[in-house]
Design a protein around this nucleic acid. Structure first.
Lengths: 172, 172
DNA sequence: ACCCACATGTAATGGGTTACATGATTTA
DNA sequence: TAAATCATGTAACCCATTACATGTGGGT
């Protein structure tokens, strides 16, 4: 899965990066990396090779502004979102067509093809998956109540879908 | 978002491609493209530049076998899955750790940052998104009942999450 | 005749991953 | 003092996207 991005439209990663800096008020590219890395999905890894070029890209497009800061010896750059950046962020977030897209779910993909594998092995797989989901990393940003509710309700719904699938297999 | 793929581990796209050919018994790379393109998510576009090199890759790794076929003038290649291919497919599908990953959902991402946008605009966005999800492309592969059930239950789940979020906003 | 679907591919480009490189500060 | 964390970046690689190129077969 890759980013789509018609000319000048923000990618998912870029939109999220603007959101992170907007929420923080101002922060370093490193903090953006941490925020991505703390996500409960491996698809938001926040690798250096992704984040630093992304930040430079958004600076060139005047959506980020950066100022140097070396209050404590460390040379860091503090990012903030420009007015144009905020407008781009809102346009990205409020795009209902992109929001409606089903996205990409490794569990859904596997269930879709699970009829091609012996049922006994699938049953074991479903059990292990349910366990891994339950044991999965805790909720991201416990400091943000709305984000926690969202994370919880998403996990609950996914577990629900998995249980529904297991029941329908047993019934058959 | 990019594929992860530790050396010799199948990517999501590769696993799904094996699944498509296993289900068809034998089919052309073009049919694999169609299958990807018919997916309800834009993240499975099935572009030529993705599928043809992918097929060659899996041929080199002896997971696909190809034979030429020109029964009706058209020069086509018929793919089949080798025994090693089936083993790789099962290992890919039965990977509970990868299945448990939350994946990548454009709606979830936007809800996560929605507190940064004026509530009135978010309300309109949620309504448009609900409408777009309802009007979205129909279910994929109505010929496969298990796939249809899965698709339906997944859409229902996402709509449920959206409604839950809207209610929690209204309560506030 | 023309267009659409079938069918196979390549080239340029974009962008994410892994791994590496460097250095300061904090903590065990 | 050694390790972890903060902090910034680059280089090689992989792979998906867009756009292009080429040709056949069937329907209007």
């Amino acid at each position: 899965m890759r980013q789509v991005a018609k000319r000048s439209q923000l990618t998912e990663l870029e939109g999220a990066a603007l959101g992170i800096v907007l929420r923080a008020g101002a922060c370093t590219p490193y903090a953006v990396r941490r925020a991505f890395g703390g996500s409960p999905s491996r698809f938001w890894s926040g690798s250096a090779g992704a984040v630093y070029p992304l930040v430079r890209r958004l600076e060139r497009r005047r959506l980020f502004a950066a100022r140097a800061d070396r209050r404590d010896g460390r040379a860091r750059r503090l990012l903030s979102v420009t007015p144009a950046g905020r407008r781009a962020f809102e346009a990205w977030l409020l795009d209902a067509d992109r929001a409606a897209d089903l996205g990409f779910d490794p569990l859904r993909t596997r269930l879709f093809y699970s009829d091609l594998v012996p049922a006994a092995r699938v049953a074991g797989f479903l059990e292990r998956t349910a366990a891994a989901m339950a044991a999965g990393r805790g909720p991201p940003r416990p400091d943000l109540p709305h984000a926690m509710r969202l994370h919880e309700s998403w996990c609950r719904l996914r577990s629900g879908a998995l249980e529904e699938f297991r029941k329908s297999k047993r019934r058959r």
